[in-house]
Design a protein around this nucleic acid. Structure first.
Lengths: 110, 110
DNA sequence: AGTATTAATCGTAATATTGCAATATAATAA
DNA sequence: TTATTATATTGCAATATTACGATTAATACT
């Protein structure tokens, strides 16, 4: 099948896994790290920076855009990408709730 | 061709994406949430709790175990799973470094 | 021994993802 | 207008993931 049964999960579970899925590829992690590091917004040199073909990078950028973590700005023939700060911090909140769950200390099996 | 080029990324990028990948499916999120919530370690009732077949849950548990986020304890015919606290907090540290990166404020394109 | 019970594994079908060559599109430059 | 440059889209091949039926393995219960 290969088809995730999203309908049996809560909206929270689906949202969380969608976010995590985007981080689930090293190229997208690398793109985000580069956008954080660089002092001016980056355009096509992500292709040089990371060692993947232009269509591949473009595809990864599309997924990052789709989930709202980055946004692009057209300047001439190039496009300037950067982190969407508002969405980034919103995403952090969603992830934090999940990551900082308290472990029930009554657990005694292991 | 369906094969991630792990060799061109840093160990950090690969580690981070591997962790995120595991969270990238709602069933695994649901399993982890259930293990957090329940007051005694859970065994096969994850199958009832989540609406997936037993082999499917077993497969997801395997991936969670592989990355070290959960561990199992055999008691009779059943297996008791729970969060691996040490690895969980270690994973949180790795993720936090990534999530809490500072955005370079010299960014001015968007 | 024979029979449940529980969970892992195997095999397989359906779908998704990754990556890239080729091509298309869009904006600028000559 | 004709390049040139930068990025997106299309199409496709290779591989991965998801899901589950069937089976297996291991323990517990009669």
């Amino acid at each position: 099948m290969g088809l995730t049964k999203s309908e049996i999960f809560t909206p929270e579970q689906n949202e969380l896994s969608s976010i995590a899925k985007v981080f689930g590829h090293p190229a997208r992690v690398a793109i985000l790290q580069h956008l954080f590091k660089i002092d001016s917004c980056i355009c096509g040199d992500l292709v040089d920076e990371i060692g993947l073909a232009q269509p591949t990078i473009s595809q990864h950028l599309k997924e990052l855009k789709k989930i709202g973590l980055i946004k692009g700005n057209i300047t001439g023939t190039s496009i300037c990408y950067c982190i969407d700060k508002d969405n980034w911090s919103q995403m952090k909140t969603v992830l934090s709730v999940f990551l900082n769950q308290d472990i029930n200390e009554n657990n005694n099996c292991c």
